[in-house]
Simulated assay, not measured.
Amino acid sequence: MTCNGCRTSTRLDVDFSMAFQPIYDADPGRVWGYEALVRGVSGEGAYEILSRVTPEQMYRFDQDCRVKAIELAARLFPAGEELMLSINFMPNAVYEPAACLRATLRAAERYSFPTSSIMFEFTENEEVTNTAHLQNIIAEYRRHHFTTAIDDFGAGHAGLGLLVDFQPDLIKIDMKLVRGIDTSPARRAVVTGVVDIARELGITVLAEGVETEAEFLALRAADVRLFQGYWVARPAFEELPGIRTELIRQNAELAGPSVGPSHPTPA
Rank of each mutant, 00 (worst) to 15 (best):
G40C: 00
G40M: 02
S42I: 04
S42K: 07
S42H: 12
E44V: 01
Y47K: 08
E48V: 10
I49M: 00
L50K: 03
R52V: 03
V53R: 06
T54E: 02
T54L: 04
P55H: 08
E56F: 02
Q57M: 10
Q57C: 07
Y59W: 10
Y59M: 13
R60H: 14
F61H: 14
D62A: 00
D64W: 03
V67L: 00
K68P: 05
I70R: 01
A74H: 06
R75G: 02
F77D: 00
P78A: 14
A79M: 05
A79D: 03
E81M: 12
L83M: 09
L83F: 03
M84T: 11
N88F: 06
N88Y: 08
N92H: 12
A93H: 08
E96F: 10
P97T: 06
A99G: 07
A99W: 10
C100S: 04
C100D: 15
A103D: 15
T104R: 06
T104C: 13
L105Q: 14
R106M: 11
E109T: 11
R110C: 01
S112N: 12
F113E: 12
F113K: 06
S116G: 13
S116D: 15
S117G: 04
M119V: 09
F120V: 01
E121A: 05
E124Q: 01
E126T: 09
E126M: 05
E127G: 08
T129F: 04
T131S: 08
T131F: 13
A132W: 15
Q135N: 04
I137A: 12
I138L: 09
Y141P: 12
Y141M: 11
Y141V: 11
R142D: 10
R142C: 08
R143S: 04
H144C: 14
H145T: 09
H145F: 13
H145E: 09
T148E: 05
T148Y: 06
A149P: 03
I150V: 11
I150A: 10
D151E: 05
D151N: 11
D152K: 02
D152G: 10
F153A: 01
H157K: 02
L160N: 02
L160M: 05
L163T: 01
F166T: 00
Q167H: 06
L170P: 01
I171K: 15
K172W: 01
I173V: 12
I173N: 10
D174M: 05
M175C: 15
M175F: 06
V178T: 04
R179W: 14
G180S: 02
D182R: 11
T183P: 11
S184F: 01
S184P: 13
